[in-house]
Design a protein around this nucleic acid. Structure first.
Lengths: 188, 188
DNA sequence: GCTAGAAGTCACCGCCTGTTGACATGGGCT
DNA sequence: AGCCCATGTCAACAGGCGGTGACTTCTAGC
């Protein structure tokens, strides 16, 4: 998505690497691993496809790198007693292409692709569930984290499948209230 | 998965079609649309790959057919006051390769594949959400159906990602109890 | 200003994919 | 029994894929 003029690309390895990584993150948060081609990513980044192999080794390595640099910490950036409301609002009202949701979207988009599932498993554990466990705390932390995680994943996939859940504004408000309640109950 | 002897396949168009459809359903419930090759499906069905094009037109048409013949009615085969417990038990204890879960698995596996997403959207609406709306009933049916649907989807994806949610038996029991409560509250 | 190496470009490889059409053959019908 | 169409087999195609290596070009450091 940088300049695409006839002039050759300015030489800056770090910026090029970052551009590829960013374009890859955006693509992988919208489509499944197998649906995304290296030529797509390169085109988005305004870069020659060969550079992907050069900088990251392979498409699979690039995907792992995307997973390893994902950061869902926005999720936990709130007081405990507002967690339910925070998550519910984020899942329903955050723009669908927001970077805040990238982590979850990437996980669910490619979870069914054998080549990507291992990296996803690791990302889910290290970058999401472990932190959610710690955030929730207490005896049932793991169980509650699994439930909250499932709800977040499910909301992401449902919303991605049909725009805004196919609900009107009033229904969305109702849904947000109910979800906030459900999630808050999980962590109390 | 039928006989693979040197003897040529017995000639039975209906059985062959059904074998392809069954193999495709199983494959699509385990992997994403783009990860599944027609040669994989044909091999599972013990059939020549060319027959897939012959009987269904294309891989995409085959996928649509799989979606159109899916049936999640096991979900609704229970009294209202047991719905939460029923769903929770099914999601946690039904074998992961059970046909009862095929519908949800197929939806989430391929929701990120552009070529498959339209068929998935239709299946989700006609075969799942509409029926869930009707089952729940009342003013907030649609909202509640979206929440229950999201939970089911999220549980499916989480469970598929890490075997049995990476929980021990006691934690699974705890999780089932909590989920049953959450879901039952949604429809009451 | 020159040089050496980093950065970017390009052409191409082998592989795999979905799909097709020509061909072989079994089995129901007369 | 014998025909003939439905059924199954096979080989091949075109296109797209990820990946590679040789080449050009820019630029930092002396």
């Amino acid at each position: 998505m940088t300049d695409v003029g006839a002039s050759p690309r300015t030489r800056n390895a770090a910026a090029t690497r970052a551009a590829i990584l960013g374009a890859a993150r955006a693509r992988f948060s919208r489509e499944a691993y197998d649906s995304v081609g290296v030529r797509d990513v390169a085109s988005d980044a305004g870069v020659d496809p060969a550079l992907i192999s050069r900088y990251f080794g392979s498409k699979e390595d690039l995907f792992v790198e995307v997973c390893n640099t994902g950061d869902p910490s926005d999720l936990f950036d709130v007081e405990r007693d507002q967690f339910g409301a925070h998550v519910a609002h984020m899942m329903l009202h955050e723009p669908q292409d927001s970077e805040k949701l990238d982590c979850f979207l990437i996980m669910l988009r490619s979870s069914a692709s054998p080549k990507a599932s291992e990296a996803i498993r690791v990302m889910g554990r290290d970058r999401f569930y472990d932190r959610l466990d710690a955030y929730i705390g207490g005896d049932s932390a793991r169980v509650c984290a699994r439930i909250v995680g499932a709800i977040i994943m499910g909301l992401s996939i449902s919303r991605a499948l049909v725009a805004d859940f196919d609900l009107d504004e009033a229904q969305l408000t109702d849904m947000e209230r109910r979800l906030a309640d459900i999630i808050q109950r999980c962590i109390d």
